[in-house]
């Protein structure tokens, strides 16, 4: 099953490599990974989406907790949560395709953030499967470049991941 694991960790050199190293060393899977400092500059928040059985996920959270730099770990998929991923996609946009892309982007509530006579760049945010659906709708032949941030997420309601 797919899990979204959120990690609060010391914003220190080497911390990220320890997390990434742990995943490769123990043969854990990484679907996506995103990391940035939080409002407290001494802390970073890392979100990793991973696939695994309950036993594997239990090991992942335990092994993450074991890292000295890691302050807190939560598996967001255990409760109600919100997840978003941002994608920027550069498309060939000539002739009829210009209208078609615009229409599709509107349907997906995307925005065209860069325009040239031959290209459109669309920005789209949402759950990962929505981004996948947009790619499917556009068709791969017109895609010049895709960049995705990986999943970020947090729990719904009062629940927070903090010190």
């Amino acid at each position: 099953m797919r899990h979204i694991i959120s990690v609060l960790m010391e914003n220190e050199p080497g911390a990220l490599s320890r997390v990434v190293g742990l995943f490769s060393q123990r043969n854990f899977n990484i679907e996506s990974l995103t990391v940035a400092p939080t409002e407290d500059a001494t802390l970073s928040r890392l979100t990793v989406t991973t696939l695994g059985s309950d036993r594997v996920i239990e090991q992942i959270t335990k092994q993450l907790n074991k890292l000295i730099d890691v302050v807190k770990v939560v598996d967001l998929t255990e409760g109600d949560h919100i997840e978003r991923e941002l994608m920027m996609i550069k498309l060939k946009a000539t002739g009829q395709m210009r209208d078609e892309i615009k229409r599709t982007a509107d349907i997906f509530r995307g925005q065209i953030i860069d325009v040239t006579p031959t290209t459109y760049t669309v920005q789209l945010a949402g759950a990962s499967d929505k981004l996948d659906a947009f790619i499917d709708a556009i068709g791969t032949s017109g895609i010049m470049e895709v960049v995705r941030t990986g999943v970020s997420g947090l729990s719904r309601g009062e629940k927070v991941l903090s010190l």
């Binding site: 050199p13 080497g14 490599s17 190293g21 060393q25």
Partner: peptide, 14 residues
């Protein structure tokens, strides 16, 4: 040294 020892140590400092 931090990199090469990372998989086999509990923690490291530079």
């Amino acid at each position: 040294m931090i990199g090469v020892s990372r998989p086999v140590v509990k923690h490291s400092f530079s």
